[in-house]
């Protein structure tokens, strides 16, 4: 079983992020790390291949400056190899262009299954997995909390507000995975050392058949016209307990659909 996992390398969320005032995009010219939301996809893929008893997990990533620190983490977790697409021409790519580029890198590998996180922790568009499926003309399942292989199909528990839906989908297909549904392993020492010699195939936009003017700023179908500060969080409501305050708490939790 061959599983490709899309992984994004992002600035460390523990460090304060900064926007480039000219492009109005996040500065990404530092050391990047594996997006935590993708570590769930990597873990799920590794578990599926373990359960299948054969096959391998490979990675696909698009990042500036041939950055591979985050890929190293996923390789140390157990992925076999990676394809890294890095090209100055790709700077400014919107989510659809990103999906096209990743799809081109995935297509060569003819995987049984493509796994991605539901959304990145720095961009949050939450659209790339489905766009990849669209570009590759593959069926797509979103918000997976568990995946099992059943012959040539997969069975997916798809998270919903009320619980989950049971979904069956033929392979090959694209599945986006909800964050927090598995516990990603921390790389072992042997995994960390082995990652050093695992192959990372570096590709440019041209290698994947894209003209420079079809990607990046030139090819983006959208434009960031303005960035505004998020509004300050409003002060909370203080309820003096007159013996009935619990009903307000119950009401509040019901409103949030927690109870």
């Amino acid at each position: 079983m061959k599983v490709v996992v899309c992984v994004k390398q992002i600035p460390d969320p523990a460090d304060p992020g900064a926007l480039d005032p000219e492009t109005k995009t996040l500065k990404r010219d530092m050391k990047l790390i594996l997006d935590e939301s993708d570590s769930y996809g990597v873990e799920m893929a590794l578990q599926l291949v373990d359960a299948a008893g054969e096959g391998e997990v490979t990675l696909v990533s698009m990042a500036p400056n041939n950055e591979r620190s985050g890929l190293s983490t996923a390789l140390a977790m157990g992925a076999a190899s990676a394809t890294l697409v890095s090209d100055p021409a790709l700077q400014g790519s919107d989510s659809l262009t990103t999906a096209k580029v990743l799809a081109a890198a995935i297509k060569d590998q003819s995987p049984d299954l493509v796994i991605a996180g539901s959304e990145s922790s720095d961009g949050y568009t939450g659209t790339v997995p489905e766009q990849i499926a669209g570009v590759l003309d593959l069926p797509s399942v979103t918000a997976a909390k568990s995946i099992t292989v059943d012959g040539s199909s997969i069975k997916v528990q798809r998270q919903t507000d009320a619980g989950h839906d049971d979904v069956e989908c033929p392979m090959p297909c694209v599945v986006s995975v909800t964050a927090g549904v598995v516990e990603p392993r921390y790389p072992s020492f042997k995994g960390i050392m082995a990652a050093k010699s695992k192959p990372v195939d570096e590709k440019t936009a041209a290698d994947l058949g894209f003209d420079a003017d079809a990607v990046g700023w030139a090819g983006a179908g959208q434009e960031i016209v303005d960035v505004a500060e998020a509004p300050q969080r409003e002060a909370g409501e203080i309820v003096e307990d007159d013996g009935e305050a619990y009903t307000r708490i119950v009401g509040f939790l019901e409103e949030l659909k927690i109870i």
Partner: peptide
């Protein structure tokens, strides 16, 4: 948490050391 306060760039002697720090910190 691999503490950012004590950045390891100063002291690490091999390229896999940051990854090792992060993983030990995760486990512990």
């Amino acid at each position: 948490m691999a503490a950012t306060m004590f950045g390891s760039d100063l002291v690490d002697t091999q390229d896999h050391h940051p990854e090792l720090r992060a993983s030990v910190a995760g486990v512990v």
